[in-house]
Design a protein around this nucleic acid. Structure first.
Lengths: 106, 106
DNA sequence: TTATTATGATACCAAAAAGTATCACGTTGC
DNA sequence: GCAACGTGATACTTTTTGGTATCATAATAA
């Protein structure tokens, strides 16, 4: 049971892995299916999936010879928890923050 | 003006940088002051501060020969915005998530 | 059985990251 | 002016990371 916060933050640091998270948010997919969405080898995608799994952000379930990769929403908890720390400090600036977020969402 | 989301996530991927964020949440500090809290050279700390600045997570203000490093709460907006994306998908699981967060905060 | 398929694992390479050492430069204080 | 101080910047080393290529293995399909 290593540092789950560190593993989660590290997993989210790569843009490909964040894209995979978005992908899997729609559907659970096999490694091969995920690979079709990216311009890299299946082996590279599998590595990213391993990092995401280490970070607790996805779960992997074997079905025959396939591996179904599925989002684990609870994996984001350590990340949100860490961010939550800052809410306690700037309750006054939090309003600005939320405004900025809403403006940023497309 | 590159990918601010990427720069912010990258900045948060390092445990030292996350610790610096917590440090600066209490007080704005000079580079030398931040350095006293870590077992590494001032140059290394300065590099971390540069990465945090690139990620928009801190602002740096010159005061004489000193550089005051200060948290920029709005810098977290791209990160929170990205995370917010997932809220739309699991409104049902969001309750579990929030429970997990509260339990994780010490 | 035999061929195909999906995956795991390993070795390897290039680029990026984390760190140190060092020096130059502007600011402060005497 | 001059010494001390805080910082910026560069060069360099080591480790980590993102990627490919390749092969072994288990499951499926004919």
């Amino acid at each position: 049971m290593p540092d789950q916060t560190q593993n989660a933050f590290r997993a989210l640091a790569d843009p490909t892995r964040r894209d995979i998270m978005r992908l899997l948010s729609a559907n659970a997919l096999t490694i091969a299916e995920v690979s079709t969405h990216f311009d890299m080898t299946r082996a590279a995608v599998k590595k990213h999936l391993t990092v995401l799994n280490d970070g607790g952000l996805i779960t992997v379930e074997a079905r025959g010879r396939e591996r179904i990769n599925q989002i684990n929403p609870l994996g984001l908890a350590p990340v949100l928890s860490w961010l939550e720390f800052f809410d306690h400090f700037w309750d006054d600036r939090l309003a600005d923050l939320k405004t900025a977020i809403e403006k940023d969402i497309q």
